[in-house]
Design a protein around this nucleic acid. Sequence first.
RNA 1: CGGGAAGUAGCGCAGUUUGGUCAGCGCGCAGCGUUUGGGACGCUGAGGCCGGGGGUUCGAAUCCCCCCUUCCCGACCA
Length: 473
Amino acid sequence: MPEKKRPGIIASQAEDYPRWYQDVIAKAELADNGPVRGTMVIRPYGYAIWERIQSEIDRRIKAAGALNAYFPLFIPESYLHREAEHVEGFSPELAVVTYGGGKVLEEPAVVRPTSETIINAYFAKWIQSYRDLPLLINQWANVVRWELRPRLFLRTTEFLWQEGHTAHATAEEAHQYALKILREVYEDFMVNVMAVPVIAGRKTARERFPGADQSWTCEGMMRDQKALQMGTSHELGQRFSKMFGTKFQSGEGEVYVWQTSWGVSTRLLGALIMAHGDDSGLCLPPLLAPVQVVVIPVTSDDEVRSTAGAILRDLASAGHRAEMDARTSSSYGRRVTGWELKGVPLRIEVGHRELTMGNVTITTRDLGEKKVIPVPSVAGEVQEALVAIQKRMLDGARSFRKENTHEFTSLDDAIAYVAQGGFATLPWRSVGPDGETSIAREGLSVRCLVAEDGSLPVRIEDNDTMAVIGKAY
RNA sequence: CGGGAAGUAGCGCAGUUUGGUCAGCGCGCAGCGUUUGGGACGCUGAGGCCGGGGGUUCGAAUCCCCCCUUCCCGACCA
């Protein structure tokens, strides 16, 4: 019975969405809470998904010209204090080491909440000439931000991410690079690999990164119609370079470099769960799934097993990430349910019923559609189905977002709508900083600003700048 | 960090009001057998300093104090 939800295994989204989210994480074996509040154990299956996220993003980052490096976990406390907004923004969530080697440290070491400061200390050493620019660096690291209200993947005290840091000769070049990362790395990955449509836009002053001149964001809509900030790219201007003396000589004298920083984190796993999951559990887009196809022999006899084995070999040699679940001591139903919870896009069942005709059954995770196909055409069918699922998941997420996004002219109407969930768009001039303050009291926020045609706004003062309002994670 | 709820076997829970056969149930787990097309069934069995620490008491899962953790709702954030 395709698409019929089996109650009792996990909570349904409709009855209790937060509970559903936790159930999926537990049942799909993605993560556990750590012993210290807000910490997280990422389990092998969850980490396998993270590794796929990493490799897709890393490839795009390198294509954008940045190189990976690694900077220390510990940052001298004084570094944070050099940029006023930066330290003000991060102070409440810092973990600070005051003891080391059994002694009180002369200068406390901050566990990095982000690395702008320490990286600038080294950029300042490395940059002397325009020939050293642009300097494009990325690092994959853990960071710590002491969280008051943690949620697995979405908001944990320690999380994994990549943070890019760049230095440019001109403001325009930095601006263009920040947008390049936003579009060609983040948006491209989120849309084309995660199958999550995102709104690329500009943050308001209120929502901006502490220490940035401008922040750009990719905002996604989850199945509960709430917004999730999935990645940000910042124009730091010259704030950090002036504080750290990151400069070079030019005809007009010394020039402080123009900088960007940008990151995505393990929060993307939360986005993946909430953008695509259903009452049967996780639902992974084929391009990101660690296991794309699972082959399930219904029984343990030789005929079924050898056919299943042959199919597995076919799939592997066709380049698919395939796995066999031959644990026939577990019932068929249990195995199937387990793989559904884990979101594997395709399932191939090998059993006598259709094997007598030389057929097997192929089932899609997203729709639960079953199709009986001849064994020799399995690899081809799988290829087609994976492409179809990837497209369908993006289309589905797109139409879901469209159905739950409406345009308004008055702020009150927009608030009334968003209170029920979804996104409201309306002219930014109808909101403004005062409107932002008032909607914050309703638990709402301006997720980002976009131009009326959906492109990135050039100047927010422009009359056609639209605000996207939603309830956010 | 404020306001609520809760921590008893891997998971979900009963027991706490009225201290004393309350160390129990379901699922899972192990062994054996029968099964295998949507979380199979029977029998047998293992498993718990009742979140941690202090206290009250002849006696504490149960009463008191402190701490930790989780969940929900707010304020702050990737």
